[in-house]
Design a protein around this nucleic acid. Structure first.
Lengths: 254, 254
DNA sequence: TATCATTTGTTCGTATGTATC
DNA sequence: CGATACATACGAACAAATGAT
């Protein structure tokens, strides 16, 4: 059995790259089953642990997913879903990304305190706030995303409508704040991180999955940071899109 | 030995979560060594493969990194470096993110054809283009990033300075295009993906690392998409930041 | 419904290779 | 050179989930 392609130093790597090639060449098309570990033992003349290590490598590469009692399934190449993060204003009405999602459940409101990491973003320290949790769902693609709005009590106290019903969509809060005379801009912070077990159960994603985290701070020209939003979605299936123009700065500004 | 904390169904998971707790509680501080696999075998009364599986779990969680012949090192919590993606304009001069980096090497120019994925972003199909590769380095934090500018021949042909010297910084190209009468806006596309071996050698990151990918399309109000940039950096150590305002739309626009 | 073969998951034991100190 | 420690590899057994008989 010529091994011209698999020039790895380790046996399990050689087997893994060989299988990866065969997958990309269409021998094992997406949706089909990889040979069982017993089959791999025979065809490659390797032991069971080595066959397992090779399949584990394919899992880490995101090429297959294994199911106990069934076998290892060759995955479809992941299609990405766009989340349009552009904030649009038409007259006094704002539009944000929630438009493309349906809410899988009613928003869940809790009273919390701002964490140190959140305080670094929003400026305020050790402050009480409303936290509005939303589970967003795109029925067309199956994408799930978690959204959290953090409304400091101090801000809610200045706006009767927020105080009475904090579980409003962000775009509605923007409109409300603009109507109260604030000139709004936003700061966006984008990171990726390993998922936690909590994330995985809520978003229904695999064990090794990574997440894209977006934090959005609503800023008022006159009053500074007002509001914090956090949006979390699977990194493998999401693409964030922005449409931006240049920020104008006068020559006298530093 | 009471196991009140480790309530996992599998032995190696129980050991892994127990060790993870001890790490977070400071018993194994960052920079110190985890007990050897032989030690773990004795203290937890487990076999070698189980000890290995537990340590592998800690690696997957990003808590330790193993070095052959030495042991498993407890990692420092990763500090993130901000990449400010805001595009600023002052008079006729533009500023982009390159400001915070030094170029580790001279830009590398090649002639290529636009791929299908790139064509989807920039609109043009099967077109020849300059590709300018840059390796960016932030000496303060050690962050490395890969930057690629794709300049279609068609665009370069219309601007003598681009034709003669395509390896200009993006902000310089923006200024050049603005001076030629284009009104510029940008579309940003942000994704995360598993790293390839190539990425890992260029960016000097670990095997399991993920990457943040940013694609930026420079748009002219009159001429459509002009330019494509791609920026790639380690997902674990990077935070992208944007400062954005609302996009104004007239009520008559759809 | 119940049983059985198949397949992956977990765990044990053991041996050898290789990098570090 | 030798001791230590992780990496790889083999063999074996049982558990648990799946799907078909």
């Amino acid at each position: 059995m010529p091994d011209e392609s698999a020039k790895a130093v380790h046996l399990y790597e050689a087997v893994a790259t060989r299988l990866a090639e065969q997958i990309s060449q269409g021998r094992y098309p997406p949706g089909s089953m990889l040979p069982s570990e017993t089959d791999l033992m025979n065809t490659f003349s390797i032991s069971r642990p080595t066959a397992r290590a090779a399949v584990a490598e394919l899992r880490a590469m995101g090429l297959v997913e294994s199911q106990r009692g069934r076998g290892s399934l060759v995955r479809q190449p992941t299609a990405r879903t766009d989340i349009d993060q552009t904030i649009t204003r038409r007259g006094k009405k704002f539009t944000a990304y929630e438009a493309q999602f349906v809410q899988a459940e009613e928003p869940h409101i809790t009273r919390t305190h701002i964490t140190a990491a959140e305080a670094e973003l929003i400026g305020h320290e050790d402050e009480a706030a409303f936290a509005v949790h939303r589970l967003l769902h795109d029925p067309a693609t199956g994408l799930r995303a978690q959204h959290r709005t953090l409304i400091p009590f101090q801000l809610a106290a200045q706006h009767d409508q927020l105080q009475e019903a904090p579980a409003r969509e962000p775009s509605e809060i923007y409109s409300l704040l603009a109507a109260a005379g604030h000139v709004l801009t936003w700061h966006e912070y984008i990171t990726a991180r390993r998922s936690t077990p909590d994330d995985r159960s809520v978003l229904r994603i695999a064990d090794t999955a990574w997440l894209l985290d977006t934090h959005r701070v609503t800023q008022s020209d006159s009053a500074g940071p007002l509001l914090l939003e956090a949006l979390t979605a699977s990194a493998e299936t999401t693409r964030l899109t922005y449409r931006v123009g240049p920020r104008q700065m006068s020559s006298t500004q530093r």
